[in-house]
């Protein structure tokens, strides 16, 4: 999934396509983060602990792949943000945590920040390719 296909990276294929893919990876990493945060709290047998461990591994792995080209400060902020907002939404929906207007406001602020970062981020090129 994460392996680099050499031909894909040539010339004008670079840019928009890679960028979209890298952001998608950050979002999926965020989803896995929700998985293990919920898992650490609610895992109750071997099966759920194994799933939690897989989620930790996957979120880390995707984060590493995404930061090959995206700046690490930006990526980590977005990753943390998705994980936090997602966990809050998940706990409201599944575990009956109280719904507060302030939570909605903060999630909207977070979305604004994420979309803002997406629009201004310029990717660096891979090491070695333009050396």
């Amino acid at each position: 999934m994460s392996d680099i296909v050499p031909g894909f990276y040539l010339d004008n294929y670079r840019g928009a396509n890679n960028m979209k893919r890298d952001w998608n990876l950050v979002f999926i990493a965020g989803l896995f983060e929700i998985g293990w945060v919920v898992g650490l709290k609610h895992a109750y047998n071997i099966g759920t602990w194994v799933l939690t461990a897989i989620a930790i591994y996957m979120s880390m792995h995707l984060l590493i792949v995404a930061t090959k080209r995206l700046p690490v400060g930006t990526t980590y902020a977005v990753f943390t943000g998705i994980g936090t907002a997602g966990t809050v939404i998940f706990e409201i929906a599944v575990f009956g945590e109280p719904f507060k207007l302030m939570k909605v406001f903060l999630i909207l602020l977070l979305l604004y920040g994420v979309i803002g970062l997406k629009t201004i981020t310029i990717e660096t090129t891979d090491e070695g390719e333009n050396a």
């Binding site: 930006t74 902020a77 943000g81 302030m102 920040g113 970062l117």
Partner: peptide, 11 residues
Amino acid sequence: FISMILLSAVG
């Protein structure tokens, strides 16, 4: 934008 995410996540 990073500060917005920070504020929101901490909040």
